[in-house]
Nucleic acid binder design. Structure first.
Lengths: 220, 220
DNA sequence: ATTATGTATTTTGAATACATTTATAAGAGG
DNA sequence: CCTCTTATAAATGTATTCAAAATACATAAT
């Protein structure tokens, strides 16, 4: 029999899907910081038993998105201003490293893709499309990571970036800060094209620092 | 009633204890890279049911010590030479950050403790007590982390440091490298006492880089 | 009224039972 | 002898059940 090009149906484990959905909900603020998470509610909501739910919660807990309290359930971790102040320098150090490596190791193709993404991002900005902007923005940073050639880096940045992305959704960025970010990205791209690793690293670090300053007004 | 100073009885969850024991076993090489992990075996070994075992494995997997394959069990993640080459620069960047912050924020008491630990470490070295040396060494790096005042940093470094500690146990360090490491720690302490944040950061980064070079001979 | 104490309910922790999937082995056909 | 089936066993994924703890509620005492 065998029909042409049948992709095998992929069956993911329930705990994985649950973890993904919960992670998404937490990052996008649908599950608010401090909110109590009831196993029972999740079971009913997703139509699964408690076993995969509990396994998913263990994962989220290790990622730092959820807090488990002995015998008294789980809750979404809070993100305080102090937490952010701590997280951003770390992210800065790691992005700087990623930048330095990317400047050295990126293929010409990757730099071309960066250019394309940059112009896409600018057009999203001009349309005032915040959601689209964030999406492209993510892709650029993802590309830098990929171009760094350091396979451990994405994994390490994941946890930090999860928290930072949460903050981004909690505090909407101002129009002026948005414009500034666009300019910064322009510089970042230039440094990359020039393969100026020191400057690229420095710019990424500064970019992060500015992001934190912008958040300060919303938080503190 | 109230008796004098009664500590509350602490009861830990099984999955936590299991995770601790497995983590220790993996880091210390008792569970070798690539080794298959059978849920059943762990159940029998620790006298618990599969539920907490599975939860512990989810945690270890998120930490990167264990690899889960859909429907075909878990195995201890391999640490290749490439992985280490990727992990060390990350650890270096984070340690450098920790050092810079520690130089700025450490209390006098913390620096005193560092001095004490340093002399303890030297005496362990003179006795040729490798295990004791590693222990004190860990404590010093822990102290730097604590002194950095960045509460997110330990959490972030945890995952990387887990892999690096594994490598340390896989390849025994040579006597000459050991002596060199002692010297480097002397310099590190000096920079800290002087509160020279730039230099401390740089030294820590270099210390890591040298560690990697030392490992290269064992691995490649 | 307020605090304390005892009881019921709810929720989580852990073990068992059931369902799928994968690995292993035995046998038939080439 | 090899390959492909097919049967069987073993291991994992999920659901269910049982046990322990925490919370909520009601009652009694001060």
């Amino acid at each position: 029999m065998a029909m042409p090009t049948m992709a095998p149906i992929e069956r993911r484990a329930l705990h994985e899907e649950l973890a993904d959905k919960l992670r998404h909900a937490i990052i996008h603020g649908e599950l608010k910081p401090g909110a109590k998470i009831s196993e029972k509610v999740l079971c009913e909501q997703f139509g699964v038993s408690r076993t995969p739910v509990r396994e998913a919660l263990k994962i989220l807990s290790t990622e730092g998105l959820v807090q488990l309290m002995q015998n008294r359930g789980a809750s979404v971790t809070e993100v305080t201003w102090e937490d952010l102040q701590d997280a951003f320098p770390i992210m800065g150090a790691l992005e700087a490293l990623a930048g330095e490596l990317a400047a050295k190791n990126a293929t010409d193709d990757q730099i071309d893709r960066a250019k394309a993404l940059q112009s896409r991002m600018v057009s999203r900005f001009k349309k005032g499309d915040r959601k689209g902007y964030f999406q492209v923005n993510e892709e650029i940073h993802q590309l830098i990571l990929e171009a760094s050639g350091n396979s451990a880096l994405p994994r390490m940045m994941r946890t930090v970036s999860l928290q930072i992305r949460r903050a981004r959704y909690m505090a909407n960025l101002s129009k002026s800060r948005w414009a500034q970010a666009i300019d910064e990205h322009e510089e970042i791209l230039d440094a990359w094209v020039d393969r100026d690793s020191q400057r690229l690293g420095q710019l990424l670090k500064q970019h992060l620092a500015n992001k934190l300053t912008a958040l300060e007004k919303k938080f503190a």
